[in-house]
């Protein structure tokens, strides 16, 4: 859903997206040391696999984006992790494209960073039983912000795409609902079962 294919967006947008995401990638890679690579890779792979879950909703079904949860758990590391997942999806499944990789990365990574900025500080002093709300906020915020960015990239590419952008924005609403329930439950689960997982990632790459 968040994969814009090649051939749609205008050139200025593609170039801007490519440059900005390259900058973000460089910044986040500098903060990531080699010792933490296996963990980042593992989480990147987890999110890649989890994105394959298709959740039925009414007569249709949706795939989870999980960028909000990634931002919450990984902080800055979410940027390269999302980028890698997008590259793999593009070259092995043909989802998205190669020139729009920059824009697609930004559309997913900026909301992840927003979640990291707003919600990660709350992780450390999370009261027992409150994990659900934090996770739900991350999931909902991630999806809605991504939907807004995807619609914006379409809208900026040409007058003719505006109505499509509006329709697209509406389709993100049910996904936001489903995703916030799923990520909420997942964070509540992690908080109960493996709190060190939440705190560990928090302490070492923040």
């Amino acid at each position: 859903m968040a994969h814009i294919p090649d051939g749609v967006l205008s050139a200025p947008l593609l170039i801007t997206g490519g440059l900005v995401s390259a900058g973000l990638l460089l910044v986040s890679l500098r903060q990531l040391d080699y010792d933490r690579l296996p963990q980042a890779a593992m989480l990147s792979a987890t999110f890649f696999v989890a994105a394959l879950i298709s959740v039925p909703i009414g007569p249709s079904s949706v795939h989870l984006l999980l960028n909000g949860l990634m931002g919450l758990l990984l902080g800055w590391t979410a940027v390269p992790a999302l980028f890698v997942a997008l590259v793999l999806q593009a070259i092995f499944f043909g989802f998205g494209g190669i020139l729009v990789l920059g824009v697609n990365t930004l559309n997913l990574a900026l909301p992840a960073l927003l979640c990291a900025l707003l919600l990660r500080p709350l992780l450390r002093r999370l009261a027992p039983g409150r994990g659900f709300w934090l996770g739900a906020a991350a999931g909902g915020l991630g999806v809605l912000a991504t939907g807004a960015l995807v619609a914006l990239s379409l809208g900026l590419s040409g007058e003719a795409f505006r109505p499509a952008a509006q329709v697209l924005l509406v389709t993100y609403l049910p996904l936001a609902l489903v995703e916030s329930f799923v990520t909420g439950t997942a964070v509540a689960f992690l908080h109960r079962v493996a709190p060190d997982l939440l705190l560990h990632t928090e302490a070492s790459s923040g």
Binding site: I53, L66, A188, V193, A194
Partner: peptide, 11 residues
């Protein structure tokens, strides 16, 4: 259930 599945996968 999917939330728990995701959590377990992460653990």
């Amino acid at each position: 259930s999917y939330g728990w599945l995701l959590g377990m996968l992460l653990v």
